[in-house]
Design a protein around this nucleic acid. Structure first.
Lengths: 347, 347
DNA sequence: GCTGGTCGCTAAACCGGTTTGGGAGATGCT
DNA sequence: AGCATCTCCCAAACCGGTTTAGCGACCAGC
């Protein structure tokens, strides 16, 4: 015997009232006598009634879910600790409010738009997170067109109708440059993330500005792609320069680790001959040798705040942008004073 | 003016037919004249009609979505490349069939059951994936009770009503042991994953059996937790032994990398004095120094197969278990012949 | 005693699809 | 011609909630 789950009609019948009364009672709305309300709740509990999310969704024209479209190549997804942490933070908030997270992973840029379109067309979600903001990001207009509420992580480089969770990578990079300059470095290179990402551009700008503020010439910058292979490639490029840097600031930990390996393979001691910093402060960063100086971020915290902001926006109680505390530099063993200048090559 | 999206009723009116006829036409069911069908499709297209997922879900008593409950501590989630890759594989299949993935991340064991209960009670999903199978996994009974179709990744250690995607970690570990033994190692240790995970136990068993098959005594085994910190801790334990191993097989890459760092910090050369193998073959593995010998797995492929299997199960066309190709050993630079025995500690 | 207002509840419409029962008209068979 | 059958379509019920209109009972005020 396969028992059907009880509906609100079953509860109504059992309690001797109408559907409407049950609905009012269960939602704690006025217009039901206290005694009746208690009776209805008792019956509902006894019958093991749970609301049908589907019926509610149809009736309320709401999905009670939010969406996240991940548009990174799969091999990068695995290496980046950002998403799982962000999602964990999101979930913590969603669970409290009985909302679900619908995930969509697409592997190429074209499919990304379709991802949002599908989420919107199906009405699967009431809003989405917009991550990895790009320069002149076309997704903002797309979401506006789709009438899909959104929250951006970071401030877009254009007018945006959506609230933003403001995360600022720059102080972390600035601190890294200052730290290296303080150690005596004058040739500080940067291995950047993809240039079309705003956070990549922001890290690059911060590096450039910090060098200028320190009165140093701009060092070499190699744009890369956040992957280990890319980090290795970029490092080779930098070390092949006529005047190679004595320190490299990488836009993430994975590239930094790969860079350290390249340096070592080329016979360079880290940090003796080359200082290295990462970004993200992954768990592994503290456990490689030498331990990686990195910038600690809080993707899980961002996820929580982004989720809260998005749900509030959907509820119409939307607020303004939320500022998150800046990323902090964590100094470890991969940074040290540069090697003393070699006499005949000194200017 | 905010245009409401057209419903099936709008299409019916515009085409001069009834709702039912439209539904039949759109679903390609017989009983509609070819000419009428064409007209209805044309009108629907012109009006920009898209089906309301919510209405369909209510009517069909289906969610058209599958669920995934992640129950790892957040810091591990970030480090493990498995989930993003698995999810990417799942998505590829879901997108084809217009299904969505509902993700739930819980951070403690108790919340895990609630996660499944919530997915089931809300009717948010039609089925779920069961990952990280545990010894005597209680979730199997739970899902049975909840009448929630599931697909397990790996074969449970008990009778299970659910189809399984059979992934076998053992050949990879066996190959790693053989490789090391072939190089001359006789003291091969293992840093295992948590003992309650079936895949952790399987890797351990494979290591043990391979050693026995090679005629070697069982080496030391330290259970750990897949984290870098855990890998480092375990490595210290092994190297503190009176008779330390000359090679260590780690249950994942992250622990192996942390282990390599510990060895180096203790003045041991890898692979000169200690050989190291990992598991997962993360992108970074090939780009650290020395490059990590590891076991390549295919989580994305597993995700695709698991998704297909789950959807088929939900459709009632469920098949038997699916066997996946075994994991392959990828030999790199972190493994070499052991140091020659030192009779009197002379080099 | 009549009016007016509030309270507590019911009946019914509604969300947007799918599915069933049946009716009108065309066609085939005898 | 009469009857069965088939094709094509419509009206209505249904999924399980929420929401609105409205009705009877009760109470206060004049």
């Amino acid at each position: 015997m396969t028992q059907r789950r009880p509906t609100i009609t079953d509860v109504a019948r059992a309690a001797g009232v109408s559907k409407g009364a049950v609905s009012f009672a269960l939602n704690g709305r006025p217009g039901v006598a206290e005694e009746t309300r208690r009776r209805i709740l008792a019956v509902a509990k006894e019958l093991g009634w749970t609301p049908s999310h589907r019926a509610r969704a149809l009736s309320a024209s709401r999905a009670f879910a939010v969406g996240l479209v991940l548009a990174r190549p799969p091999e990068l997804l695995g290496a980046d600790p950002f998403f799982p942490a962000f999602i964990a933070g999101v979930e913590r908030v969603l669970a409290e409010r009985n909302q679900a997270l619908v995930l969509q992973v697409v592997t190429n840029r074209r499919a990304e738009n379709d991802g949002y379109r599908r989420l919107a067309a199906d009405g699967r979600v009431d809003g989405v997170f917009l991550l990895d903001l790009r320069v002149a990001d076309p997704r903002i207009a797309l979401l506006e067109e789709l009438r899909l509420p959104a929250v951006t992580l970071g401030r877009p480089d254009m007018a945006s109708p959506f609230p933003a969770v403001l995360v600022d990578d720059r102080p972390g990079i600035t601190a890294a440059v200052r730290h290296l300059v303080g150690l005596g470095h004058r040739h500080v290179a940067h291995v950047a993330g993809p240039e079309h990402f705003l956070h990549g551009a922001a890290r690059r700008d911060a590096w450039e500005n910090a060098l200028r503020d320190a009165g140093l010439p701009p060092g070499p910058c190699v744009p890369s792609d956040f992957s280990a292979a890319g980090g290795a490639r970029a490092t080779h490029q930098l070390l092949d320069l006529a005047d190679p840097p004595t320190a490299v600031i990488y836009a993430n930990d994975v590239m930094a680790m790969a860079g350290m390996a390249v340096a070592r393979e080329r016979g360079l001691d880290v940090p003796g001959q080359l200082s290295v910093t990462g970004f993200d402060d992954t768990e592994l960063a503290a456990h490689i040798s030498p331990a990686l100086t990195s910038v600690r971020t809080d993707p899980s915290g961002w996820g929580g705040v982004a989720a809260r902001t998005l749900l509030d926006l959907i509820d119409g109680t939307g607020g303004p942008d939320v500022e998150m505390p800046p990323a902090q530099l964590v100094v470890r063993a991969s940074t040290a004073a540069p090697p003393p200048p070699t006499p005949h090559q000194s200017p």
